[in-house]
C-alpha cells in the first residue's frame, strides 16, 4: 500500500445537518435502512458545558480492517490508496463483518439480504473528484485527507473523540478536530 486515504472531520464546523448522509444516499440511491454514513451527536457528559456537537462517520477504511479479515468470501479488498472496497456481488450476507466492526459501518440491507458500506466513492476518486459526502458538506467540516505522520502532528488533530471505540482495534483512517465551546450566558 502506497498511501492511506481517509477522512478528517471538524466537529467545530459540523452543524449536524446530515447533508453528508443524504448526499451519500443521493449518489447511490440506497434504501432508507442502511446508513453508510451517519451523523452522531456527542454526549453532553463528555464536555464541561452543554453541547450540540456532532461527528459524522462512514467506513473508516481502517489500516487493520477487521471486516476484511473475517469475511469468508473475500468481499473486502484494500486498495493501494487504502480504500477498503466491499464487493456487493461477492457478499453472501453472513454478517460476520457486522460483528467485527467496532463502528457498525458495514450495514445489512434486509431487502437484498446483503451487507453494504461506504467505498469512499472510489470511482469518483479515480476520476479526480471528491467523495459525494465531502463535496456536499456545506460548512466544509468533512474533508478527504491522506492519513500520515504529518497530519497527526498538526495542531488540534485528534485520533479519536470521547464515545468512540479505541482506534487500536482497527486503526481507522479518520482524524478529528474536536469541538470548541463558546461563552454562554444562560438563564439556568
Amino acid at each position: 500500500m502506497t498511501k492511506q486515504l481517509g477522512f478528517l472531520h471538524n466537529s467545530e464546523k459540523c452543524v449536524g445537518c446530515q447533508g453528508c448522509e443524504m448526499a451519500c444516499k443521493n449518489e447511490y440511491q440506497t434504501d432508507a435502512a442502511p446508513r453508510w454514513r451517519q451523523v452522531f451527536q456527542l454526549r453532553e457528559e463528555d464536555y464541561s458545558l452543554p453541547t450540540r456537537m456532532f461527528f459524522s462517520m462512514a467506513c473508516n477504511h481502517c489500516a487493520n480492517p477487521e471486516c476484511l479479515r473475517v469475511c469468508p468470501v473475500k468481499a473486502y479488498t484494500k486498495r493501494e490508496d487504502g480504500i477498503v472496497v466491499h464487493d456487493h456481488d461477492r457478499c453472501i450476507g453472513c454478517r460476520l463483518c457486522l460483528m467485527a466492526c467496532p463502528y457498525d459501518r458495514p450495514q445489512f440491507n434486509p431487502a437484498q439480504k446483503k451487507v453494504e458500506k461506504c467505498n469512499l466513492c472510489y470511482q469518483r476518486i479515480d476520476k479526480g473528484e471528491k467523495p459525494a459526502c465531502v463535496a456536499a458538506c456545506i460548512p466544509e467540516a468533512l474533508q478527504l485527507v491522506e492519513i500520515n505522520e504529518a497530519l497527526d502532528q498538526r495542531m488540534g488533530v485528534l485520533k479519536t473523540l470521547p464515545g468512540l471505540p479505541s482506534p487500536d482495534i482497527t486503526q481507522p483512517a479518520i482524524r478529528f478536530i474536536g469541538p470548541k465551546q463558546g461563552k454562554q450566558i444562560r438563564r439556568d
Partner: peptide, 17 residues
Amino acid sequence: LGHPEAAYRAITHLGSS
C-alpha cells in the same frame, strides 16, 4: 446466510477468515 445459494464461496478466504 442472506444468500445460501452462494454458500460455496464461503471457502475462498482461508488466508485469514
